[in-house]
């Protein structure tokens, strides 16, 4: 009985001691977050998420300026780029950034965002910049 109670007490005290240290660290981190991040707009935070994925926010802004808000668009990314973590981040962030524009299959769209794939010669094209310095530029194509 005594041994059992002693074990409970030892574990509780040890767990509390570690938790107290963690709580102090969290309090310090929260204080720092308030100091550094308060007053920051959510627009800034969204571009920070893009930068955090090592992507160029200007590419997203140029695409959204070109594709009308009511339009649907298709995305073609070379598999070697699209399969990487950063390529998937680009696709996910672009889908979110371009809302309420809907991403649809290629044959349903008049607007195409092309990265690393051949650009059709028939249509109007705009180069909107490089997502990374070493990769080919992203091109927006309109067949309208």
């Amino acid at each position: 009985m005594v041994e059992r109670d002693r074990l409970i007490r030892i574990v509780l005290v040890a767990a509390l001691a570690f938790s107290a240290l963690a709580a102090v660290a969290e309090a310090y981190a929260s204080f720092n977050a308030v100091r550094h991040d308060s007053g920051r707009s959510w627009h800034q935070s969204e571009t920070d998420v893009i930068r955090g994925q090592h992507l160029n926010p200007a590419v997203f802004m140029r695409i959204s300026a070109l594709v009308p808000a009511s339009a649907a668009y298709a995305v073609s990314i070379r598999p070697g780029l699209g399969n990487t973590v950063n390529g998937q981040a680009f696709a996910a962030l672009l889908r979110s950034w371009l809302l309420p524009r809907l991403q649809v299959p290629t044959h349903h769209a008049r607007w195409h965002v092309i990265w690393g794939e051949p650009v059709p010669a028939c249509c109007r094209t705009w180069s909107v910049g490089r997502v990374y310095p070493d990769e080919p530029p992203v091109v927006v194509v309109s067949d309208g």
């Binding site: 969290e26 929260s30 308030v34 308060s38 935070s45 998420v49 955090g52």
Partner: peptide, 17 residues
Amino acid sequence: CIAGLAVVRAVVQPLGT
């Protein structure tokens, strides 16, 4: 109070990468 710190942080801190 400890859990409340998470609320304080969520108010100001942008999402991490």
